[in-house]
Amino acid sequence: MLEIKNLHASIEGKEILKGVDLEVNAGEVHAIMGPNGSGKSTLANVLAGKPEYQVTAGEVMYGGKDLLAMRPEIRAREGVFLAFQYPVELPGVNNTTFLRTALNEARKYNGQPEVSAGAFLSLLKKKMRLVEMPDTLLSRSVNEGFSGGEKKRNEILQMAVLEPKLAILDETDSGLDIDALRIVANGVNKLKTKDNAIIVVTHYQRLLNYIVPDFVHVLYDGRIVKSGGKELALQLEERGYDWVKQEEVTE
């Protein structure tokens, strides 16, 4: 589904990704871990198409197509979804209208009929139960005045509505208490199928107790320096990132 080869990316002239290689197949959950500043969020944002990042080398194939040649909205309509680390507040943009517009844009692009306001509302209510979200958040502006936990839940709600093929969760656990973390993780697990893939970007192992990865990769200084199964996350938790850094140096 996703094939990243030798990806280099920079922001404001500073190189952050220095040759990332990664292959993700349908039905898999990948965790990308790494210390602060290793390039985890950059990788997530580059995949979603954030214009501030320049790709200086490498390629990313997604479902056989060149992902990097697509505008962000096209990537989304093709099924790529980024759950933001810091979801922005959009005062005056109604949450429900926003979600319906997003869904219908994807449906139009994929040659499907648009969903009416009424049908959308019942769909939305169903999806909201996944993330245990109260109805009141629907009539509000997107993320405006939401607590940290509500914002993250709203991200997963969007994921539930848009049903992406490839979901990238960028530090979705940051700022969440244990209850909110469980709700968000449960939502993600229910959305997991054999046809989609999930990349979980996280600094800590604790989210991976709930969303269990098939593969764990350690990103360090813009490169994936170690890959393994879910036990790698536990090792990291025990021994810290310094262990990987030292290995990197000795290799």
């Binding site: 198409g49 962000p72 909205e73 990537r75 989304a76 979804f81 933001f84 959009l90 997003a102």
Partner: peptide, 10 residues
């Protein structure tokens, strides 16, 4: 970017 990342044109 937030809106475009959800499939809404620029």
């Amino acid at each position: 970017f937030y809106l475009t990342s959800r499939g809404i044109g620029e």
